[in-house]
């Protein structure tokens, strides 16, 4: 008994110390896709401006639920929330950072970024229309490669995910058949292939199965040295997935098109643009219960915009263009006082 009370006292003292030494806390919940960069930003911001971020990566749907119920200071979502819902729930939506989705393949004899694909071909593969790697439509685009007579084994995210939302948005944009039969969502009715859990599950499945193809976040592909492919963009040129190509896509988007920043970065114009790029969003109440905490959230993202670019780039995310950052700041000062 005595030991218990002693340890309890120590624990309480510890908690008290943590609270007093701890910086001002803000809480957020939602998308898993940007979670690594939010974590790094949180660490850096705690040291620099004394704001400690407590972010729970529970998925975009969960993040929306949490901010609708106001159980966190901000929500985070990969898919933008539509305008009427934002008004109804009294939320401001702004982008935090961008990322890209890349196809990965496992074809014997084909190295990274050698294979050339188009969105139409990707959709046909995932629709189960193209089933062999030496299909005429693929060979036509890859005369320089020796493609084997091997079954294509498509892998997709079995768990609902923002990555799937971005990927299926792209397929819907470039393939009418896909748009009418499948559509875009965090999970869809797949016509072919096998599902795996998480980016790592998809990557492992593709690695294990000869003839495999999958899609993952770029950061994941780079860190694990997966064999990515080239894709044909809207301008008709084949691009390899590089940070420069992602940035080009962001710069070629018309950010002023939507007041809630729900701008599609999918298949944008520009000869060097990577076609599957997306922003991830923050949802902040316009009628905060605690204005001071809401101000801290804005201060945190303001700091991250200014100082977090290197951290984001180091993790293979794409920082927002400066013009967009300024637009977000302008929105803040028009909505909130002080």
């Amino acid at each position: 008994m005595k030991r218990i009370s002693t340890s309890l006292a120590i624990l309480l003292a510890g908690l008290g110390m943590a609270a007093s030494a701890g910086a001002q806390q803000i809480t957020g919940a939602g998308a898993t896709f940007p979670a690594p960069v939010y974590a790094k930003w949180g660490e850096a911001a705690k040291a620099a401006i004394g704001i400690e971020l407590n972010y729970q990566a529970i998925g975009s749907g969960g993040g929306q639920n949490q901010i609708f119920n106001r159980t966190v200071d901000f929500g985070a979502s990969d898919a933008p929330v539509d305008a009427p819902k934002l008004v109804e729930q009294k939320l401001l939506q702004f982008p935090a950072v961008m990322g890209a989705v890349v196809p990965i393949v496992n074809i014997p004899g084909v190295e990274a970024n050698q294979l050339k694909l188009t969105g139409e071909l990707l959709a046909d593969i995932y629709l189960g229309k193209i089933t062999k790697w030496n299909d005429d439509k693929i060979v036509e685009m890859n005369r320089d490669l020796k493609l084997p007579n091997l079954a294509i084994a498509p892998a997709y995210r079995a768990d609902g995910s923002g990555t799937t939302y971005v990927f299926t948005s792209y397929l819907s944009a470039v393939n009418a058949d896909w748009k009418s039969k499948v559509g875009a969502s965090t999970s869809v009715k797949w016509a072919a292939g096998t599902g795996a859990k998480g980016n790592d599950g998809v990557a492992a499945t593709v690695k294990q199965v000869k003839g495999g193809i999958g899609y993952v976040e770029n950061a994941y592909a780079t860190q694990n040295k997966l064999a990515t492919t080239q894709l044909r963009n809207k301008a008709g040129s084949f691009v390899t997935p590089t940070i420069a190509a992602f940035k080009a896509a962001a710069e070629n988007a018309d950010w002023s098109a939507d007041p809630n920043f729900a701008v599609s970065l999918i298949d944008t114009q520009g000869a060097t643009s990577w076609p599957i790029v997306s922003a991830t969003f923050i949802l902040l109440p316009t009628d905060p219960k605690d204005p001071a905490r809401s101000a801290l959230v804005r201060k945190f993202f303001d700091w991250s915009y200014k100082n977090g670019s290197d951290i984001a780039a180091g993790l293979e995310y794409v920082p927002l263009p400066a013009g967009v950052q300024d637009a977000v700041r302008a929105k803040w000062s028009s909505l909130y006082k002080g």
């Binding site: 529970i58 998925g59 975009s60 749907g61 969960g62 929306q64 639920n65 609708f68 119920n69 079995a158 768990d159 609902g160 995910s161 965090t186 999970s187 292939g193 096998t194 599902g195 859990k197």
Partner: peptide, 18 residues
């Protein structure tokens, strides 16, 4: 490939809005 109830629920739950 197939699916089971428990597996489907676990996978789809996080992205199912209230």
């Amino acid at each position: 490939p197939g699916n089971t109830i428990a597996s489907l629920v676990a996978l789809e739950f996080p992205e199912s809005p209230a």
